[in-house]
Amino acid sequence: MTARRWIYAALVAVPLLFALAGPLLARGAPGERSIPFGPSPWSPFGTDRLGRDVLAAALTGGQTFLVTGLVTVLGAYLVGFFIGVAAAAATRAWLDDLLMRPVDVLLCIPSLLIIMVAALHTRGSAVAIACAIGLALVAPIARFVRMAAAGVVHGPVMDALRMQGESRAYRYGRYAVRETARPLAADFGVRFTAAVYFLASANFLGLGFDTTSTDWAVSVAANKDALMIAPWSVVLPGALIVLLVVGTNLLVDDLLSDPRSIAAAGARRTGRDA
């Protein structure tokens, strides 16, 4: 494992540690509240607008945020994957149109508009907003999966398997999964980033979780007016969101790099050193 990969993994590990182990670590925080935007007896980060310790709030505010983002993108990818694969494998043009034209219409609708409509009609239900975010992600996922799978499903290898009379479906599936795994995994990282962005935007606008929640995005929105007098109440939760998004993309890009490109780059470095 290269030093660069260790750095990328560390960027992701910090917000994950806050989200997964945070509630346990925050048990030692004082239960009573202090002066808003003042010093805290538990950590050097001070208190937020409600007098809660900023570090304790950050430790308890990531779990729901992270789980909601993961579940949303997994559900969206499940739906988008089946639509995209079905469209790519369609042998009739009308079937491809039947599947993809509604997707094209959905692509034309601004994602934040879908989220805002869901929030207004459900009075800010977190479940409805998560579903709206998933709906906004389905269209680009289906488009990408269709593009990635089309060259495989209708490629020469599949044609050769059909000409050989290969009737076992798992042979087709195993080959298709092997060929599309790398681009789809990379795209999953991008969609997770998009889900985090939409979720953070909804919470920042007050459309998601309760405004007194310790959720990272809610904390940034709730405390932004005190950025100059209590910067950690905004910087700490905001930095955790940035680390999660940037670290995830960098780590996924590094893990999914083409081995041939990595070998070629290593050979060039060796040649320069020599």
Rank of each mutant, 00 (worst) to 15 (best):
M1R: 07
R4E: 07
Y8A: 15
A9L: 14
A13P: 07
L17F: 14
F18S: 09
L20S: 00
A21M: 11
L24K: 08
L25M: 11
A26Y: 02
R27N: 14
R27S: 15
G28C: 08
G28L: 14
S34G: 05
I35Q: 09
P39Q: 07
W42V: 10
S43T: 10
P44K: 02
F45K: 01
D48F: 04
R49F: 05
R49C: 02
R49E: 11
D53K: 09
L55W: 03
T64M: 04
T64K: 03
L66Q: 09
G69C: 15
V71R: 06
T72Q: 11
A76N: 09
A76L: 10
Y77K: 06
L78W: 08
V79L: 12
G80C: 10
F82S: 06
A86V: 00
A89T: 07
A90N: 07
T91E: 14
T91L: 12
A93P: 02
L95G: 06
L95C: 08
R101I: 13
R101F: 12
P102M: 06
P102V: 08
V103R: 04
V103Q: 08
L107W: 01
C108G: 15
P110I: 07
L112E: 00
L113N: 00
I115M: 07
V117I: 15
T122L: 00
R123E: 14
A128G: 03
I129Y: 00
A132I: 10
I133Y: 03
V138C: 10
R146Y: 06
M147E: 13
A148R: 12
A149Q: 05
A149Y: 06
A150L: 08
G151D: 05
V152S: 09
V153L: 02
H154Y: 01
G155T: 00
G155K: 01
P156C: 03
L161D: 01
L161E: 05
R162E: 06
R168K: 15
R171Y: 04
G173P: 03
A176C: 12
V177R: 14
E179N: 14
T180I: 06
T180M: 12
T180R: 04
A181V: 11
A181S: 07
R182N: 15
P183T: 07
D187A: 09
R191V: 09
R191S: 12
T193E: 13
A195H: 02
V196R: 00
L199V: 04
L199I: 10
S201N: 07
S201H: 00
N203V: 11
N203S: 09
F204H: 02
L205V: 10
G206E: 01
L207M: 14
L207D: 04
F209P: 08
D210A: 15
T212A: 14
T214C: 10
W216L: 11
V220N: 07
V220T: 08
A221R: 13
A221G: 13
K224R: 15
D225L: 10
D225T: 12
L227V: 14
L227S: 01
A230L: 04
A230C: 01
P231S: 01
P231L: 02
P231C: 01
W232G: 00
V234T: 04
V234G: 00
L240F: 03
L243T: 09
L244D: 06
L244Y: 03
L244N: 04
V246R: 03
L250V: 10
V252S: 06
D254E: 12
S257L: 13
S261M: 15
G266F: 03
A267F: 06
T270D: 14
R272S: 12
D273H: 14
